[in-house]
Design a protein around this nucleic acid. Structure first.
Lengths: 116, 116
DNA sequence: GCCCCTTGCTTCGATTTTCGAATCAGTATC
DNA sequence: GATACTGATTCGAAAATCGAAGCAAGGGGC
């Protein structure tokens, strides 16, 4: 399958500029993309294990995303399964504040719901 | 329109657990969601201005995303347009390392392309 | 050899999401 | 009343995703 992943420097969905951050937002905004990176940061996984860990995501989309993320040099297939590249690990680290934020979000949504 | 935004504590697409970070990944993984937050962090904007800044994204999707993000308490409509809430500002800050990462990504993709 | 199991991955029809141009209703200005 | 904004909706078309079935390759066990 031919991967048509967004790349920095090339116009992507929603941005003619090719600004790197826009390409990143396009790549990461595709369904399951961040989830896949998240799961692989916990442990390298093969295709089917990854599918199980993402609660049976569609194999066709998993295949497409793996192609795109591999093409973007964020991960690679080794003998023990897919693994993040150093670049991919950096991305997950850049995204890691999201976990703490989401817990604060959960608290605020709870107290907001309690007020209604 | 009724917003069916992911919320922490409630199972979302791809996760039965309701873990906050999974709800966040679902919400942010929808098309244009992160881009909208990104643009609003640069400057508050009205509906049409936002649409222009996102290079003519579909108005129907913009409307849906605005509903979802508003329901998630990440933004709100004021007299001068849509604005991030403090919670939404925190999210954008949590995502801000992405900009620096994307520039490193751009450099690595360039040098990788040069080798081919 | 053959059988059985697992792997990464593709196929393809059905469903969901997104697109985008037209349009609506509300408000302000003249 | 006419014009020009605004946020937002409608709806048929296009694209993305789903998901069950299946394929080809590899590794034992016999």
């Amino acid at each position: 399958m031919e991967a048509r992943a967004p790349r920095p420097g090339v116009p992507v969905r929603g941005s003619e500029s090719g600004r790197p951050v826009m390409a990143a937002l396009d790549l990461l905004g595709r369904r399951w993309a961040m989830r896949i990176l998240w799961e692989l940061s916990q442990a390298p996984s093969g295709f089917r294990e990854l599918q199980r860990r993402c609660e049976r995501m569609s194999s066709s989309v998993l295949s497409t995303r793996l192609d795109e993320l591999t093409g973007a040099r964020l991960l690679a297939l080794h003998s023990d399964g897919y693994r993040l590249t150093p670049l991919g690990q950096d991305l997950v680290e850049a995204l890691s504040p999201l976990d703490a934020w989401s817990r604060r979000w959960a608290r605020e949504m709870d107290s907001a719901a309690a007020e209604d």
